[in-house]
Amino acid sequence: MSRIGKRPVPVPTGVTANIDGRVLSVKGPKGTLTLDLADEVTYAVEEGAISVQPANDTRRARAFWGMQRTLVQNLIVGVTEGFTRQLLITGVGYRANVQGKNLKLQLGYSHDVDFAIPEGITIATPDQTTVNISGIDKQQVGQVAAEIRRWRKPEPYKGKGIKYAGEFIFRKEGKKK
């Protein structure tokens, strides 16, 4: 039984939610997001909240229940506050800066890496070793952060590379004589 699925998702003032067929659309101050609804779960928009309930008593419907409620909540948070991921770059000569619609990364390769910033995503570099990725779609923000991190994952000996803020890199000891 889902405990998180039992609570309805509150819809704050200034946000509108509509269900059209099997698509939920949420419009707020930061933009509009849509979600394709699962068949195993029923949705209802009522007096300032969106409730999510399993359509039947199958194991699959119960499994989808909490996940779908969390996806609906991510839509609401995205159109009101937005999401942000922060990447930290560690290494001698490693740096990043935004140039127009591209993020230019210098990561120790023989060439600079140019990462095209997708639509709906804002990337800022407050300093050369910090990259802030923000947007209204949590999945897209996380995917962009993962693609940038993939260029140079942190290594366990010196910790050089691109890591998420707050991520712990397990350090290994080097060779011994």
Rank of each mutant, 00 (worst) to 15 (best):
G120R: 02
A49I: 14
T34F: 01
D57Y: 14
P12W: 08
V11T: 13
A96Q: 01
Y94S: 00
S25V: 09
P8C: 14
N102R: 04
A124W: 08
K27V: 08
G28T: 03
T16V: 10
V15Y: 01
Q86W: 03
T129N: 15
T16S: 07
G108A: 08
L103G: 04
T90G: 04
K101V: 10
K101S: 10
Y94M: 05
Y94A: 00
N97C: 12
D114L: 15
V45P: 02
I123N: 00
G120H: 03
T80Q: 05
V72T: 09
V23G: 03
G5I: 02
A44Q: 09
V11S: 07
E46M: 06
D57Q: 15
E119H: 10
S25H: 10
I133P: 00
P12Q: 10
T90P: 00
N102E: 05
L33G: 07
G66E: 07
Q73L: 04
V77L: 09
T90S: 06
T90F: 03
V41E: 02
L24S: 00
V72C: 08
I50K: 02
N74W: 09
Q128K: 13
L88M: 09
Q99L: 11
H111Q: 13
T70Y: 02
N102D: 06
Q86R: 13
T80F: 02
H111L: 12
W65M: 02
T122D: 09
Q106E: 15
T129H: 07
W65C: 03
L33F: 08
M67T: 12
I121G: 10
D112G: 12
I19L: 11
L24G: 00
L35W: 07
V52P: 00
T130N: 14
S110Q: 15
T34Y: 02
V98R: 14
T80D: 04
I50P: 01
R59M: 12
T58F: 07
D57M: 14
G14S: 08
T90Q: 06
A96F: 02
G91F: 15
R85H: 11
